[in-house]
Design a protein around this nucleic acid. Sequence first.
DNA 1: TTGGTATATCGAGATATTTCGATTTATGGA
DNA 2: TCCATAAATCGAAATATCTCGATATACCAA
Lengths: 102, 102
Amino acid sequence: MDIERSISALNNPMRRRILEWLKDRSNFPPALPGHEDLEGVCVAYIQEKAKLSQSTISNYMGLLKQARFVKAERHGQWTFYRRDEENIQAFLAAVKDELLKT
Amino acid sequence: MDIERSISALNNPMRRRILEWLKDRSNFPPALPGHEDLEGVCVAYIQEKAKLSQSTISNYMGLLKQARFVKAERHGQWTFYRRDEENIQAFLAAVKDELLKT
DNA sequence: TTGGTATATCGAGATATTTCGATTTATGGA
DNA sequence: TCCATAAATCGAAATATCTCGATATACCAA
């Protein structure tokens, strides 16, 4: 658990917002045909919602991935991102442990 | 709870370290004569331990104070800083609420 | 009032982050 | 194979953060 990298990834309002959006797949357009079974969301959908450039969103998703807040799954030309709930919980536990007294 | 300002304040290893040091008054030299009853630690003691310049530490403590991670108490020429446990817990709850699904 | 000490604030240079458009890479279809 | 599309990477300009030394402010003691 690299708390430095995690906090750094969270230190941006849009990246935090994306993490919130990813809590619920229905925040995005329906899955692409043939990918209905996938929980993840493609970069283009996130970009459209965030209204930032493609390269910026790709960069953001890379930072969130390095921080283990999301997992990426490549299917053909698409990369589907979804939250990594386990590691999000691990981060919260680590921050709590570092910050809290006792 | 300004989560933006809080995360930004935490986004620095030395500031996080200072918060950890402040968990235990005995991480610092004994209280100044006549201030034994105070829980807080003066800037000079923190500076000495951190080995950064006086102005940097003063700035850091100001950021931690704005983020409500510490409280400042002025006594004469000294400013004594101590953790604000209540607001630290409030921050943890807010981050948990924002990050965690369901 | 004068001088000394603790802290805060100011101004600036070095470094990091943000965000973009352009380019590259990977893939899939005609 | 050739083209189109999705995503990643590159390079750069704008902005923010880090950290310092110098200066200002506040307070105490003689």
